[in-house]
């Protein structure tokens, strides 16, 4: 058979793209307990997630997405998955879980379009912050990127979000990341590009 995979979306992706679930409609009065917003129009992808939370669980969710079919479908399926989950479970949803629920995505779509989990975590962070609640999930999900200099993904995230660093070279200058053994450099560069994308910088 001819390989059509490069541009072929699964049936599930197409269903969610054509009929996305849990969209925030203009007329609906959905009062959120937490909101998250990642990406930008300039990046080509932007997701907004609004959560209603009760008893430490996601009671309901609404979202909006500017993006391609896989961006829309991945946010839609994530919104189905997360309903009824504890905040801890919701926080731990990974892009891999979303992609697997979608029955796969073309490889080149994986990084750029699956931002739903990030918008979800941003909404949970927002809820906890607004209510002066501790955020044990954020600390738990932290990953060390550069072992030599002990630089975490969250530290890089903060530096990107605040625009304290705008280029990878600036990041290295600021933190010393990847300047000792250099093993983490390729992975860190990918993460840096992805975080720039998530925070809406091109």
């Amino acid at each position: 058979m001819i390989d059509l995979n490069e541009w072929t979306y699964s049936k599930i992706v197409m269903e969610h793209f054509r009929n996305p679930h849990n969209i925030l409609s203009e007329n609906e009065k959905f009062i959120p307990d937490g909101e998250g917003n990642v990406g930008s129009l300039a990046c080509g992808d932007q997701m907004y997630v609004a959560l209603q939370i009760s008893d430490g669980k996601v009671k309901d969710i609404r979202w909006l997405t500017y993006g391609c079919a896989s961006a829309i479908a991945s946010t839609s399926i994530m919104s189905d998955m997360v309903k009824g989950m504890s905040l801890e479970q919701a926080y731990e949803i990974t892009p891999e879980q979303i992609v697997s629920a979608l029955d796969g995505l073309p490889e080149h779509k994986f990084h750029c379009s699956v931002l739903g989990d990030k918008a979800l975590r941003a909404a949970i962070d927002d809820y906890l912050k607004k209510n002066n609640l501790p955020n044990p999930y954020k600390a738990k999900s932290v990953k060390i990127i550069c072992e030599c200099k002990n630089i975490t993904d969250q530290r890089i995230d903060e530096l990107v979000a605040s625009q304290e660093v705008r280029t990878f070279a600036e990041l290295q200058e600021k933190t010393g990341l990847g300047t000792v053994c250099g093993k983490c450099k390729a992975k860190a560069q990918d993460l840096f590009a992805e975080l720039r994308h998530i925070h809406g910088f091109v």
Partner: peptide, 9 residues
């Protein structure tokens, strides 16, 4: 456009 973020901040 209904499902788009429309560039919200």
């Amino acid at each position: 456009r209904q499902i788009s973020t429309r560039g919200r901040k």
